Computed example of a mutant assay.
Amino acid sequence: MDTDSDTEFSKGWLEWFLSLKGSEFFCEIDEDYILDRFNLTGLQAEVTYFQKALELITDSLEEYSESQAEEIENSAKHLYGLIHARYIITAAGISKMLEKYKESAFGYCPRVHCNNQPLLPLGITDVPGKYSVFLYCCKCEDVYNPKQNRHRSVDGAYFGTSFPHMFLDTYPYLKPQLSESEMKKFRYEPKMFGFKLHAVSHIHKWQDLKRSEMVARILNDS
C-alpha cells in the first residue's frame, strides 16, 4: 500500500493513520465498534471500496490490485472518518476525546478574553466533502479555523455537528460558568479616550456608508 516504509506499514493501518500529520484530532476507535455491522449502517453507499477499505482498517486485507491500492487507502481514510463521527458521540468515544481535550490536543481559543480556553473539533455540516473541520470554544461559543494548515484539509463531517454539545452535556463541569460581573469583563467594550462609544457612532458609520454608495451610483450613471 502507499506507505513510507515496510516498517511503518507493519504498525498496522490504524496506528499508521493516527500517526500521520493532520490526524491528531482523531481518536482511536475500538475495533469491536468497527466490526459491528450495525454501526456501519448506511456507510456502504458513501465509500467506493467499502469492503476492502474495512478490511484494510482492520488489517485483514489480503487480495487487492496494485492499481487500486491508492483508491482503497483513500476509501479507508474516508470510511474511518465517517465511523469516527459516529463513535465520538458514544460513551466510549466521548471518554477518549476527553483525554485529548485534557491534553489540549485541539488547541486553544485565539480570543484574548478566553484566556487559552481549550477547543473542541466541530463540523458545521454532517455532509462529507462540504467544509473542513472547525474548532469550537465553549467559553465565547464561537468557532475558529484550525491554527495548523494540515488540519484545514480534514473533513468536518468526520466530527459532526453534534459532538461538542454532546461532549459538554456529558461533562457540564467543563463549560465555564461566568457571573454577571465576569461577563462584563469577558466582553470587550470599545472605548474612545476612556469613554464607551455611543450607539449613535454606529448610525453615523451607516449613514457615511450609504452616502458613499449613493455618490458612487451617481458617478456611474453620469
Rank of each mutant, 00 (worst) to 15 (best):
F163D: 00
K184P: 01
V133E: 12
H113E: 15
V154M: 06
K21N: 12
K196S: 14
S75N: 04
E189T: 15
V154R: 01
R150T: 10
T48Q: 14
P146H: 07
T7K: 07
K210Q: 15
K77I: 08
K102E: 13
E15W: 03
K139T: 01
D4P: 10
S65A: 10
Q177M: 09
F9E: 15
I34N: 00
N115S: 10
D208H: 10
A53I: 02
Q51K: 11
S5E: 03
K147F: 04
N115M: 07
L119C: 02
M183E: 12
G160Q: 04
A69C: 05
P190I: 10
D59Y: 07
E8A: 12
H151K: 07
V133R: 13
I34M: 03
E63Y: 15
T125L: 03
S65R: 12
E73I: 13
T48R: 14
S23T: 12
V47Q: 02
S153P: 00
H151N: 09
T7M: 05
R152N: 11
K139C: 07
G156L: 02
I34G: 00
N39G: 05
Q68N: 13
L54H: 08
T3P: 04
M97P: 08
G93W: 01
K100C: 02
E15R: 09
D30C: 07
L120G: 01
E55Y: 06
S222G: 15
G107P: 05
E103H: 05
W13L: 14
E28Q: 11
R211C: 11
A53L: 03
T41Y: 10
A199Y: 13
L79V: 10
T48V: 15
T58H: 08
A76R: 04
V112C: 04
